[in-house]
């Protein structure tokens, strides 16, 4: 470990600590000066002037989850692409650029196939386009 110099991560740690300090400090400072008069009406959630009805989350919106899944796949793909893209220039100068280009193209085109599949099957549509039975369910009153 003698040649490993971790001083380059110091600013990261310092800045995270500073962020916590700024947030905590300003909130603490505020708690000394600001008024604190809780009453029942102020503590209820805002629903445009009405009394809040029902629980806060009753819909089963699966499209959020599908988007998150597709995002994760592409995120991992980009994480794998980064090191290969970083050495592409060097490989190009040596002369091995063609083979690496083929690899990058194959990698990307496989994932393009994936997104084309999702597109065609309607997973990327935000508004559901099929029949009525698949409308989001309304909250059940217990």
């Amino acid at each position: 470990m003698s040649t490993l110099n971790l001083d380059v991560y110091m600013p990261v740690v310092i800045l995270i600590a500073l962020a916590l300090l700024v947030a905590g400090g300003s909130l603490f400072l505020g708690s000394l000066i600001r008024p604190q008069h809780p009453n029942k009406l102020k503590d209820t959630a805002y629903e445009c002037g009405e009394e809040p009805v029902g629980t806060a989350w009753a819909n089963f919106n699966v499209r959020f989850y599908v988007i998150a899944l597709i995002f994760i796949i592409f995120d991992v793909e980009s994480a794998l692409m980064f090191p290969v893209a970083a050495v592409f220039k060097r490989f190009n100068e040596i002369g091995l650029g063609g083979t690496l280009l083929m690899s990058i193209l194959t990698f990307t085109l496989v994932l393009v196939a994936g997104i084309v599949y999702c597109w065609k099957k309607g997973d990327l549509d935000w508004v559901k386009s099929f029949n009525q039975t698949n409308q989001p369910t309304i909250a059940r009153k217990e």
Binding site: V62, L69, Y117
Partner: peptide
Amino acid sequence: ALIGAAVISRP
């Protein structure tokens, strides 16, 4: 994984 996830989460 992409296709599997899309198939599973499709209503």
